[in-house]
Simulated scan of single mutants.
Amino acid sequence: MLRSLSLLFIFFFLWTEVRAQEQLQPYRPYSKDRMEQALLQYEAIAKSGCWHTFPDTLLLRPGDSSPLIPQLQDNLLLTGDLPLDSASSALVYTSGISTAVRHFQRRHGLAPDGVVGPVTVAALNVLPDKRLEQLRINLTRYDAVFTSEQEPYAIINLPEFMMQVVDSGKTALQMRVIVGKPVLKTYPIHSRLDMVVLNSYWQVPTSIAVKEIVPILRRNPGYLAKKNMVLEQSDGSGWMRISPWEVDWQRITAANFNYRIIQLNGPDNELGVVKFPFPNRLPQYLHDTQAKQLFSYPSRAFSHGCVRLEKPVELAYYLLERGSGYTAAEVKKLWELGRPNHYVRVKKPVPLHIVYFTSWVDEQMEVHFRDDVYGYDALLGL
């Protein structure tokens, strides 16, 4: 415990120095300087030999007693999650320790329920050496990612499942996002937000059409009408709308699928009320979603590769007001016109950075870790 306290005082002075330096620098939601200080912290933790691991079966709720409470407190003191004045010599899981566990859970992207269960134990059992390597791997990504930080810009950190719009030295807009499944990744990219599409159509990607919709059409061609979808067939020079009842769906495969399925705008449209296409060579874009309940999950890798936004309307207002000179009333009028699939160009595009950081340090000097959802850290040796 004494070694833990000594480390805490060292970390306090390091953090104070970095915060003072950052007052003179541009605002950055992800900072290389802060990461370098976190490396020093976790190097010290790793060398201290004070880190404890716990049985996978451990379960602690406020009021529970356990001989492992002192070891849990040691870890939380080392990481700064538990303030010194909340530590206790009793073998009881106090409300103060529960608060510290919630803080630890938030930093690791877990549901902050204050209960030490299997998922939290798994995070506690990651040794400081591993966290140190995770920090080093992510530090190497900074120079490649932040080649330009001219404000305003939008940044999406895939393992964090969050988007921020940075403008005038602060976060102007922040929201949760849903990204691609591990088998259908959303890829890191540098691009720009230069278009807003109101009341958008959804052209169903061929992979989804073949794998998910064609099997339904074999049973019921009326499914498309129920979902406000239309079917088009290529004649070599263009697309012609046809009836799904005219197609022998039993014979349709990925090899002979020369159709496209489009969902028209409406209350059931999978893209919601707005989408944000951006220049890239992949079928990736940002959009609204009907599945709002998915934003409540801590880990949100559910999509087919596009990025679903928690606050898409707010982003549309921001881009059109700031980037195209519309007033809020004029933007509202655009919505009220109700034009289907209405493209509005953003005259002053906002840079978009889709990045991949599984560890970073925020403005409050809190060190965050996330799961390597796409395995990119593993490719670099972690």
Rank of each mutant, 00 (worst) to 15 (best):
K130S: 10
G180K: 00
N199M: 03
T147M: 08
S168Q: 13
V183F: 09
S168E: 15
A172H: 04
K130Q: 10
I189N: 11
A209F: 08
V119R: 10
M162F: 10
S89I: 11
T94A: 08
N125F: 07
F104S: 07
Y187D: 12
N220F: 11
L139S: 08
R176L: 14
R102F: 00
P215I: 09
G96P: 04
V145W: 02
A172I: 05
D129I: 09
P182F: 10
L127E: 08
T120R: 04
N199T: 05
K211T: 13
F161K: 01
P159H: 09
R218K: 15
V179A: 11
D194T: 01
D113N: 15
M163E: 13
V119E: 14
I208S: 04
Q105M: 07
Y142N: 03
R106W: 01
L110D: 05
S200H: 03
R192A: 12
T99S: 14
V214F: 03
P182T: 11
T147Y: 06
D113T: 07
R106G: 00
S148Y: 01
R136N: 14
L84G: 12
T94R: 12
E160P: 03
M195I: 02
A87E: 12
I178L: 15
V177F: 01
Q174K: 12
S207M: 08
V179Q: 07
L91V: 02
Q105V: 10
L127S: 13
A123K: 08
H103F: 05
H103S: 15
P188F: 09
V196H: 10
T147N: 06
P83S: 08
P128F: 02
Q105A: 06
K130F: 08
